[in-house]
Design a binder for these strands. Structure first.
Lengths: 217, 217
DNA sequence: ATATATTTTTAGCTTTGTCTAAAAATTAAA
DNA sequence: TTTAATTTTTAGACAAAGCTAAAAATATAT
């Protein structure tokens, strides 16, 4: 399994090409910042190796084997992200591209040891769940903050928009993973939300709220 | 700088192709377990990029630029080895091939943070010195154990033969990096050494002694 | 010093992953 | 439903890194 093959499986997984759902050649090309023709080539190879099932012009989806491989890469990626933040004091928005490299390191024992060293974390620094060793992914019932009822409290577990500008905004305003957020008020006018976070009360726009995932009990 | 280019620079460095010393095509091929013709190809490329100086049929040596790159890879390799042993409880003889992968991860900040996290170690688990960030390598005056005078004590800092069988032998007999070794007696007959290590006294063969580096005061 | 052996390089081919440009299939629209 | 637009695939090229086999250069030995 080459570096590149792993990248493709991960991309297909993230685009939802699992459980009989199909993903288009163009979508993969865009996600991976490459050309559709390159994608077709690789898809054919992955199909021969039975990591994906594929009929010409009909899109592609992961086989059980492919899904297993994809989840193992996601697991590695997220564990390394936890390592970078928890142990090396990286901030939330710096870890992605380094983890993108580290996820390809091949050693089962390394990942097992890392998992133990990090005390078996369940979520990565972005609040995304870490697949278990045998490929089970915790179902998290997260909601967008703007969908949360008045007076309810939730824990910030992730973002919808993970672009650097948005992550920097959150950082600047002291909003981080694991923070408890209570919805104090909703403005009918523009959908702004008055929220309580870390014992401060701030007003955030609808756009911000609709890109923040929280987990309520 | 590709993965493969880095491997070649490291190999040339380890073969001593620095400070006007020259290394042969065949030697590199053997070290890297590849063919001489492949080496010639890569040497030409590295020469164009001015990482090595090279005249046909005359062998190759690192430029200042190339040496700097090689030392940075050695630094990364050895820091990762310390991480694996100190933090993830790997044993001495398991870390090499994983570090071989990790050394290619590209992120200056990652290495700086790792160095800090490990508390700026000076030696790797094999007792080899870790180059500083600016490429300085500590001069260690290590000697082979069989060259040490009677009654002298030294600290075990490395091995000459780093093959798995030898490392396993040491492990089995409780000889590890950092151990204090005193030479109690030398047998004229076959060069065996009676040594004291960790409050035990054992007899080791000349071959073993001649593959163990120690550092005396 | 010449012949032999060894080392190194060249030439040409392979694989992996990418690309462009053109053809084929599918989807959308008039 | 026939045409137009879009998506996907094919065909052919390219760069990286490796290989084999043969040629050229250097080193060794008689």
């Amino acid at each position: 399994m080459t570096h590149s093959e792993e990248d493709y499986l991960k991309a297909i997984y993230h685009l939802g090409g699992t459980e009989n759902e199909t993903v288009s050649t163009n979508a993969i090309a865009e996600q991976m910042d490459t050309k559709p023709s390159s994608v077709t080539d690789m898809i054919r190879k992955l199909s021969e190796k039975e990591y994906v099932s594929y009929k010409k012009y009909q899109g592609v989806s992961l086989t059980d084997d492919g899904k297993e491989k994809a989840l193992s890469i996601v697991r590695k990626h997220r564990l390394w992200e936890v390592f970078l933040v928890d142990k090396l004091d990286f901030s939330w928005d710096e870890v992605h591209e380094i983890a993108e490299q580290l996820e390809h390191i091949k050693s089962e024992k390394l990942i097992d040891s890392l998992d133990k060293h990090l005390n078996y974390p369940k979520f990565d620094p972005h609040g995304d769940p870490i697949p278990s060793k045998n490929g089970e992914l915790m179902k998290t019932t997260k909601r967008l903050l703007n969908e949360v009822e008045l007076k309810q409290t939730g824990i910030c577990v992730g973002v919808k928009d993970s672009s650097a500008p948005f992550l920097k905004f959150l950082d600047k305003h002291g909003i981080a993973l694991g923070d408890k957020i209570t919805v104090l008020d909703k403005e009918d006018f523009d959908g702004s939300l008055q929220i309580n976070i870390n014992d401060r009360s701030i007003l955030i726009s609808h756009l911000i709220a609709s890109n923040l995932y929280v987990k309520c009990d």
